[in-house]
């Protein structure tokens, strides 16, 4: 409300030409404004209201109060399973993504002839459409005829049955995702190339070895990129759908060991057509992601180093 009154007050203070410019401005951004209201804000509000109803899309929604939420939190074993699966995946995948992303970026940061070719090769798996890459991995991980168990066999190791073994479903999906780590590596590479060369020169003069330089210079200078990747990765984890759907199967695979949260929302909303329940699940996910994101942001002041800040204090 206060924002609105401030807005109208500032409107009256504008000159005629400024008002014309402002009108033009609203006109130019109107496609987004309309889209924001119709495809984003409206649906979010609707989703909130829907989450208090029971509705299978035919007929009219029936108000059930907090029943959906109550059921989700107290009686729904699949909800607990979906949360566990998604969090486990996040804990497994995100640190590996950071470590491998940075290592590959360091490897790609060498000044060697033909390095561009390697950058392309590493990036290529990231370009493969998710459905296709998931299918490739289902085949690679085939327990009998698959590539991975064949190769493990060379060393006398009998590989697990991967996507048919509840214990190995998540590691399999993590592996599939890491195949696309070239996408993150390129972002870390951009971060690496932004580190001023003088820092390394100064450290070299002081007698720091390569490992010390990496730990004391490279990593701190990369923390803003790591932070950015973590926030995006966190949001992305909760949206993981295609690999789970293709590799684990639409119902979540053996013992629901691949029942990612998004897959569960899809099942409830569009397979069993329980719109209200699906909306409640989606809202819980959104609130959860927002809390996690705020926590990551809060924690950032302890470990993220922004060079611009240093300039403020001489």
């Amino acid at each position: 409300m206060t924002a609105l009154t401030r807005l109208s007050r500032s409107w009256t203070q504008l000159s005629a030409s400024e008002r014309r410019e402002a009108l033009a401005g609203y006109l130019f951004i109107s496609p987004w404004l309309v889209g924001f209201i119709v495809f984003f804000f409206g649906p979010i509000v609707a989703s909130f209201v829907l989450s208090f109803t029971r509705w299978n899309i035919v007929g009219s929604p029936q108000w059930v109060g907090l029943a959906n939420y109550e059921r989700i939190f107290t009686q729904d074993p699949f909800f607990r399973k979906a949360v566990t699966v998604t969090l486990k995946y996040a804990v497994l995948y995100l640190p590996l993504e950071v470590v491998f992303g940075i290592l590959i970026a360091v490897v790609l940061n060498q000044k060697l002839r033909g390095i561009g070719v390697f950058r392309t090769l590493y990036y290529m798996p990231y370009i493969v459409p998710k459905v296709a890459s998931s299918l490739v991995w289902v085949w690679v991980l085939n327990p009998r005829y698959g590539l991975l168990n064949t190769m493990l066999g060379w060393f006398g190791i009998k590989g697990p049955s991967w996507l048919s073994d509840p214990a190995w479903v998540l590691p399999s999906i993590v592996m599939m995702a890491l195949w696309g780590v070239g996408g993150s590596a390129v972002i870390y590479l951009a971060g690496l190339q932004n580190v001023p060369a003088q820092l390394y020169e100064a450290a070299a003069v002081d007698g720091a070895n390569r490992l010390q330089q990496f730990v004391r210079i490279t990593l701190p200078m990369l923390t803003p990129t790591i932070f950015f990747q973590l926030v995006l990765g966190l949001i992305g984890t909760f949206q993981t759908f295609t690999p789970a759907f293709i590799a684990a199967g639409r119902s979540g695979g053996p013992l629901q060991s691949g029942l990612f949260y998004m897959l569960y929302i899809y099942n409830r909303s569009f397979e069993s057509m329980r719109m209200g329940y699906g909306a409640a699940l989606a809202w819980i996910m959104t609130v959860f992601i927002m809390i996690l994101t705020v926590l990551v942001f809060r924690s950032s002041k302890y470990w993220v180093y922004y060079e611009a800040e240093r300039k403020r204090t001489p």
Binding site: F40, G42, I44, S47, I235, M275, M285, T286
Partner: peptide, 8 residues
């Protein structure tokens, strides 16, 4: 995540 808007 835009998935909140999926159902509505």
């Amino acid at each position: 995540p835009y998935h909140v808007t999926l159902v509505p």
